[in-house]
Amino acid sequence: MLTLTNVRKTFNKGTINEKKALKGIDLHLNPGDFVTIIGGNGAGKSTMLNMIAGVYPIDSGKIVIDGINISRDPEYKRAKYIGRVFQDPMMGTAAGMEIQENLALAFRRGQKRGLGWGIKSEEKEFYYDALSRLGLGLQGRMTSKVGLLSGGQRQALTLLMATLRQPKLLLLDEHTAALDPKTARKVLDLTQEIVDNQKLTALMVTHNMNDAIQIGNRLIMMHDGKIIYDVAGDAKKTLQVPDLLQKFEEASGEKFANDRMMLAK
């Protein structure tokens, strides 16, 4: 479904701030894979997701989705295949527009936009049902501006928007990190539900090791721009947090130093 071949990225090349963010990433995802990604600060987790989404161009390597080489496509073209949810709840929705307008924009992801009406009346019923499934009561507020919603509601809405038109690949970049624990749990449950129902292929960056172990069928650990550990299936199911810490030390030769990850329950 998704194949990364020797993907490299260096920021600020040739300057004192040079940062080799990705040092040759090779990754292959099968259809239906739900992969969680963990790693310390600056490991390249978000960079990898941004490279796949096309936020910045890659320096070298190849990114192929479902047989289509998207390595050099601009971000807006890749959007046809990719649904995204960001860490910042403000980033995934247009605050000044109505809930239903946001959904209508998302429903046209990867479609040709013309001079037809931006939101057709028959769509509204579909949005109503989709919002009802979130269980947040948003279906009764379809004409409210998104700016009036809480962070958790906005994140749930972003998740719905990313999957409203089924993506070939769903990218979740620490999408629960800015939420309180209870809301984070709710959004995570929704994520699992949507991914299961639509049988999506997904990549999820998280700083919560327990989540990383419990969710999805595969886990990868990144360090210093490389994938240092990749585990799937039964081996992943039986993982414990101490195992992960040990794996990290073995693979990187360093102590795992990330307070946020260590403290996350």
């Binding site: 989404a53 959007a79 995204r84 403000m90 980033m91 995934g92 929705t93 247009a94 928007m161």
Partner: peptide, 11 residues
Amino acid sequence: NNENMIRALGV
């Protein structure tokens, strides 16, 4: 309103 968002939605 939100340039990043609408680009992520293919515009």
